[in-house]
Design a protein around this nucleic acid. Structure first.
Lengths: 197, 197
DNA sequence: TCCAATATAGAATGATTATTCTATTTACCA
DNA sequence: TGGTAAATAGAATAATCATTCTATATTGGA
């Protein structure tokens, strides 16, 4: 029966719904907007997602599966060169900033900013995303950081997660390309220096 | 007549209104909520602020004057030691993370995340805040960075602004103390290394 | 082809939204 | 003290909100 459920909901429509929540956030997007702009059936919405909150959570998960997974792919490589993996990941921000289409940052991180007013369910999901990112960074940093380094791989991974959060928030607030570029360069110099010390 | 206007609006009530917008954001706080929870007179609201948008903008300015100014005070010092000024500024995040009271991050930066849906007026105000922060960092970095450094003081200032944005967003999303501490330590090590190279 | 289950479109509902209006109270100065 | 202007409280309004209901259309298998 899960099979049937899936076949009913048009994937293209769900992508549109995801985009809308991503762009406008939970509180600034009404069910009427969704129905009117995407064609998602109102009755189907309540049958399959049990309301607006359920739909939002489903779209957040959809985003993580479809968008986030692709973005963190460079960090999944088991390449021996940990710096290269991290560098490839952060260079994506430069590509994003060069792109002519408007970026709305990261749906998950934008939601993080609204979190105080969402269900604990949503908050937990965002924190788990932070954790996944942390683990991926940490894996590469472990083989990169010298024994005598001042900061541990775990500490540095937190530093990188914080920088991703910063970059994504800059994107969302339509900051100039130069700011993005300078922050990425700062991060990369910092990581590069770790191996030289 | 501006004199009269000021005497009418209770400063304590305005502080409460500011706190509410700060905590809940524009879209998740109704005029009825404001009236019920702070005692702000509804008629006065429309007379003096011309609606919810005007009140929000006024509270954002109030926040910048009262809260932000105090927070960036360490960067206003003309101390000869630029590193010390920057360090003092970032150590404030550690104090904040140790504090038992819940932090809602930075009102300006949380608004940045909602910006795509606000008036350009609001977006511009947030960008000017980024700019002010940049200039303050840049001032200290200029006397800190070696001539042969890979990154310019202006580039590094952008890097620091991005990190402030990241830290504030972590606060807002109720991230663990350890994440905050590790990001601050990363920033400080990076700046310290600038002088040693 | 016919039937039962499901999908759809959109009207109805009742709560909540921002804003305006009205009536009453307060403050201030001659 | 008396009168005018401003402040207040809260009712009224019309739009919008999330959700449910109803009636019609569409499907898929015997």
């Amino acid at each position: 029966m899960a099979r049937i459920t899936l076949s009913i909901l048009d994937e293209a429509i769900l992508d549109q719904v995801m985009q809308l929540f991503w762009q406008r956030g939970f509180f600034n997007l009404s069910v009427d907007d969704i129905v009117a702009e995407t064609g998602l059936n109102r009755t189907a919405l309540y049958k399959h997602f049990h309301g607006k909150e359920g739909l939002f959570m489903a779209m957040l998960k959809r985003y993580e599966n479809n968008i986030t997974q692709a973005f963190i792919a460079p960090l999944h490589s088991n390449h021996s060169d940990g710096f290269k993996a991290i560098k490839t990941f952060f260079l994506q921000f430069l590509e994003l900033s060069k792109s002519s289409e408007i970026s709305f940052g990261c749906f998950l991180i934008a939601t993080a900013s609204d979190i105080p007013f969402h269900q604990p369910h949503v908050a937990q999901f965002v924190h788990q995303f932070y954790k996944k990112l942390h683990q991926l960074f940490s894996k590469h940093l472990k083989q990169l950081v010298q024994k005598n380094a001042q900061l541990s791989p775990n500490a540095l991974a937190d530093f990188l997660v914080g920088n991703v959060v910063g970059l994504m928030t800059l994107f969302r607030s339509r900051s100039p390309q130069k700011m993005i570029r300078n922050q990425v360069n700062g991060i990369l110099q910092f990581i590069a220096d770790l191996t030289k010390q």
